[in-house]
Amino acid sequence: MKTAQAGTLESMDCLVTLTEAAPGSGIKINITGASAARFNSAMTKKINETLAELSVKDMEVAVQDNGALDIVLGARVEAAYGRLMK
């Protein structure tokens, strides 16, 4: 399966890894790092929203977080998706 990454592990950033998933398998999200426990549901929501905007239905998403704001998380998912599609 093809994978692509975007982001960094710097402060207020996150490293997003997208891996192509088989049709019908849905979105699978795994968040680790600084804010994972506290903000898991908000981050999951943002990832789902961003993928929906990109019309993505099936994808494995791994996020290593170092305090990324919503706006950064969305940008990193979009950038990783752009790289995956190249």
Binding site: A6, E78, G82
Partner: peptide
């Protein structure tokens, strides 16, 4: 360049 462009664009939108 691609990731920075997306990030900056989202910050400007916000």
């Amino acid at each position: 360049k691609d990731a920075a462009r997306i990030l900056v664009s989202r910050y400007l939108k916000q």
